[in-house]
Design a protein around this nucleic acid. Structure first.
Length: 678
DNA sequence: ACGCCGCGTATTTTT
DNA sequence: TACGCGGCGT
């Protein structure tokens, strides 16, 4: 490995290993390169054993990509034992070893957001449950967990009646989770912190296992994640974090970009290195991005520059209707791909929210352009996948009531709501989970003969599956389970169309093949560990078959972070979409601006912004206007937006750009300050 | 216990 | 527009 093809700050970041290191990496400045080379450097030059290095990312995709790039740099055997995982998998790995310290039992389940929602709905059932309140509470509880605030602390600091109710719900919810031997996603981060604070021996053990820590997308860490980093690094202080506050787009889920500043306070010897040369975009695109983001407050001043030429103009497609917009984009992709002879996968269509993909799917299909959607209906939200996962969860974790309730009557066993209610009441009186009391005589007494017999059928089935699960490996067990359930036939019977049934069966096959893959990869492939691991994966995004195809990439702006494409179409560049109508306060607008910044900086050669003046929403036609962010881009670099920008004088433009802000005064204030600083 | 029909609400962004 | 849930009828 040599460092010659890296620039000076990149080299400095890689070779800085004696001090804690913060790398402020602007968009396209080669941050993944720095991390991968640094890992190689640690192993080959600094003598670190790969097994003692831990790199943390936020998504499975970036973890996988990082691994691939490191393997390409190193000898295969040198990369063996290297730990590259998401924060959540790291938390899971810790908890799978230390669960008993936290009152959990082996084979705990991981609940997804849907499970959490149904849990909370159930817990608030008595108090006249209002769906909106449940959603709010779910969000609030998640926030507390991200901020490392326990239920007791939440209750103590609650200063409104609503917060108090929510804090009580939080407490009830935690008890319920414990009873079900389950954790939610946020627990996977929070519980390890709790553990490390309470059990010094566990902390020492994990500090001994992680001698060097690297964190990607550091600006996205929340308080709990920051605590994990701080605790694991302990006194050794051997770590590198890489981030960019201008690309912080996860404040809504608790990300604290201020963690960048906190690092300097908590680790005074911190070495701060800035990467400011962009290798991705034409200078016109980069200039537009810089102009846009200059409207935000910054934690650190950066001066991102590109040595590339100006390149093409940034094009704007103003369209009359949404149909026209998607059509024009499709036609343009077609003609560009012919002209430039760039492959379809070099084109990306980026949008604010998932539902916007539909119009583009249709338009691309109409023009026979292959496409791939990243993050379509999540694999694990599909009914058939949830069903099988629920069986696997219940087999490995008898306390998992959510799983039992899901599959007790799927496929049909003629066990109805009345029976289930009796069962739930009985379990409640016995202080037990549902599955454990299925065979108790006391329960028999309160049920009809028919209901009891059906229930026993279910109980016997689960018992039998538990025995089989011990005898077979995970893959063969899953196959056996699906066969015994007659699940495929059931899908054919219950699906509305044959097409749907086939699709569902395909998904089931996909799931089993993933269990097979995972089984081969894992060192200790027990069923319960595979099931937990699987819950954290998003299978569609790892689909290899589709990767090879020459396909236009469709994804949300959030999903696009960390990626780059020669040709980017940023569509739906409209008020209420970007910025989203639910992010209208000052902080919200800044985050939306960063989102636009992320979108723009994905582009290498060409960037196209499009918007529609009318759009159907919920069946009704609505008027739309171009995004305020369009007015923040340098007019000289735009093409096609004349009727938006040139009709207005400079003053009017400024007015128009600002009129959206709720608090004009504040905004003008910050602008003036900025002008003074320059 | 189950299926059908009709009404009402949904659209941020993710592990 | 589309899907999900609740109510009602069998």
């Amino acid at each position: 490995m040599n460092l010659q093809d890296l620039n000076a700050p990149q080299q400095a970041a890689i070779t800085c290993i004696d001090k804690p290191c913060l790398v402020l990496a602007g968009a396209g400045s080669g941050k993944t390169r720095v991390i991968t080379h640094k890992i190689a450097w640690l192993i080959e030059q600094a003598g670190y054993s790969p097994g003692k290095i831990r790199a943390l990312t936020f998504t499975n995709k970036s973890a996988r990509e990082m691994r691939q790039r490191i393997v390409a740099l190193l000898d295969k055997k040198n990369a063996k034992g290297l730990h590259i995982s998401t924060f959540h998998s790291f938390g899971l790995a810790i908890l799978q070893q230390e669960y008993d310290q936290l009152g959990l039992r082996k084979s705990f389940s991981i609940m997804d957001s849907k499970d959490v929602e149904s849990c909370l709905t159930e817990l608030t059932l008595r108090t006249g449950n209002d769906l909106d309140f449940v959603k709010q509470s779910m969000y609030q509880i998640s926030r507390w967990k991200n901020e490392f605030i326990t239920a007791a602390q939440a209750l103590q600091s609650a200063d409104t009646p609503i917060l108090e109710t929510q804090a009580k719900l939080y407490e009830e919810y935690q008890q319920y989770l414990l009873a079900c031997n389950s954790l939610d996603f946020d627990d996977l981060i929070m519980m390890p912190v709790l553990l490390f604070r309470q059990h010094a021996a566990s902390l020492l053990k994990w500090q001994g296992m992680v001698h060097y820590l690297l964190v990607d997308e550091y600006q996205d860490t929340n308080t709990s994640q920051y605590e994990i980093i701080k605790l694991v690094c302990g006194t050794r202080q051997k770590f590198t974090v890489v981030g960019d506050d201008d690309q912080s787009i996860y404040a809504w889920r608790g990300a604290r970009p201020e963690n960048i500043n906190r690092l300097q306070q908590d680790f005074p010897s911190l070495e701060v290195i800035k990467l400011e040369q962009n290798y991705r975009s034409s200078s016109r695109i980069l200039g537009a991005a810089n102009a846009l983001i200059a409207n935000n407050e910054h934690l650190f001043e950066k001066n991102l520059w590109s040595a590339a030429g100006p390149g093409e103009f940034i094009r704007v497609f103003p369209c009359k209707t949404a149909d026209e917009e998607s059509n024009q984009v499709a036609v343009d992709i077609l003609s560009r791909s012919f002209q430039s002879r760039d492959e379809f996968q070099q084109f990306a269509i980026l949008y604010r929210s998932n539902f916007q993909s539909r119009a583009y799917e249709k338009a691309l299909r109409d023009h026979s352009i292959p496409y791939q959607i990243n993050g379509a209906t999540a694999f694990f939200e599909r009914q058939e996948i949830k069903d099988i996962m629920a069986y696997l969860r219940l087999v490995t974790n008898p306390d998992d009531d959510r799983a039992l309730l899901r599959i007790i009557n799927t496929p049909r066993r003629e066990i109805g709501t009345a029976t289930i209610k009796t069962l739930a009441n009985y379990a409640k009186n016995r202080h037990s989970s549902l599955a454990k009391i299925l065979k108790e005589l006391g329960l028999q007494e309160s049920l009809s003969r028919r209901a009891w017999i059906r229930l026993q059928g279910f109980a016997d089935f689960i018992d039998e599956m538990r025995i089989k699960a011990d005898q077979l490996d995970a893959l063969n067990f899953t196959k056996y389970l699906i066969l015994e359930l007659d699940y495929e036939d059931w899908l054919r019977d219950t699906c509305n169309s044959q097409k749907q049934a086939e699709n569902a069966i395909e998904n089931i096959v996909e799931l089993t093949s993933w269990i097979g893959n995972l089984q081969k990869q894992q060192e200790e492939p027990s069923l319960d560990k595979l099931v937990s691991h699987l819950s954290l994966m998003s299978i569609l995004e790892n689909d290899e078959d589709k990767k090879d195809q020459q396909a236009v990439q469709l994804m949300t702006l959030h999903a696009a972070k960390g990626l780059e494409f020669p040709h980017v179409y940023l569509v739906g560049f409209e008020e209420d979409s970007l910025p989203h109508h639910q992010s209208q306060d000052a902080a919200g607008i800044e985050e939306e601006r960063r989102l636009a910044y992320v979108g723009i900086t994905r582009a290498g050669k060409t960037l196209t912004l499009s918007y529609a003046k009318t759009r159907q929403r919920f069946g009704e036609i609505q008027q739309c206007e171009a995004s305020r962010f369009l007015l923040e881009l340098p007019e000289a670099d735009l093409e096609g937006a004349e009727h938006v920008t040139s009709k207005l004088s400079a003053d009017e433009k400024k007015q128009k750009g600002l009129s959206h802000f709720a608090d004009l005064q504040t905004m003008l204030g910050t602008r003036d300050q900025k002008a003074d600083a320059c």
